[in-house]
Design a protein around this nucleic acid. Sequence first.
DNA 1: TTCACTGCAAAACGTTTGCAAACAG
DNA 2: CTGTTTGCAAACGTTTTGCAGTGAA
Lengths: 136, 136
Amino acid sequence: MAKGIGVQGSGGLTRQRDAVLRVIRGSGEHLTACEIYEQARQLLPSISYATVYNSLKFLTNEGLVHEVKFGKGASRYDRETERHDHAICNACGKLVDFDLDLSEELKRQAARRSHFKPESIQLTLRGLCPDCRPGK
Amino acid sequence: MAKGIGVQGSGGLTRQRDAVLRVIRGSGEHLTACEIYEQARQLLPSISYATVYNSLKFLTNEGLVHEVKFGKGASRYDRETERHDHAICNACGKLVDFDLDLSEELKRQAARRSHFKPESIQLTLRGLCPDCRPGK
DNA sequence: TTCACTGCAAAACGTTTGCAAACAG
DNA sequence: CTGTTTGCAAACGTTTTGCAGTGAA
């Protein structure tokens, strides 16, 4: 297991896990487990809810997808596994990825203020998305 | 209601809500609803779980406490209601507040990249807390 | 008397688990 | 064969809800 990060033929990329991965990769959105389950059933009607969860855990561990947990409700899963930041709309809840150049200086400042040994750093912007801002 | 942010005598600061508020203010930690329930019962043995939840929602709406939801499990509640950042220990899960001067330039950059109208911005550092870093 | 708040129990929600059957190496 | 993965159903922890009873204005 974890013998490589290749997409095909990696350790246990079963049909079910592949279906889940395909659903996530095929969507630009950040899907919930429930949405993934519904879509995965179209690819593989026999798949079960628990298997979707198991697959999500597997894929997250393998680094093939990224789990995002925010605010209320369910986790969401993201095909983007590189470091990135999030913007959340206060009106409609939409979650958007973006990338910021967080300077080394900022990381150092954060580490100094928190007394933590930093491993990763992420920024979250809350506001109004383009569809919800007044006078769009 | 919401006639002021005063601690005493504000709109509906009932005995139960006051007990919950006291528990949160009396702890430097970020308590879960469950922990708050347990401690609040020591102040007010008849208080119920649902009332703790109702009170937390009320206090959060009034801006008297701050709700923090991260990763697995339960929400946590923070007496600090000013803008601030969080550091989370990847080893023990400890959650620590700190404050960073997020420059206007950074906010502008985030707004530009995300196309959001910014309302608030927050940074999350993950790493190892002082107790968990090797060679402490 | 009125209306908001409380306490309780039950339900809802997202997620995890136990286990037998199916599968892959 | 052996270990892993699946599907199902039941359990779990957190939070919300419905409703009758309480208490303050």
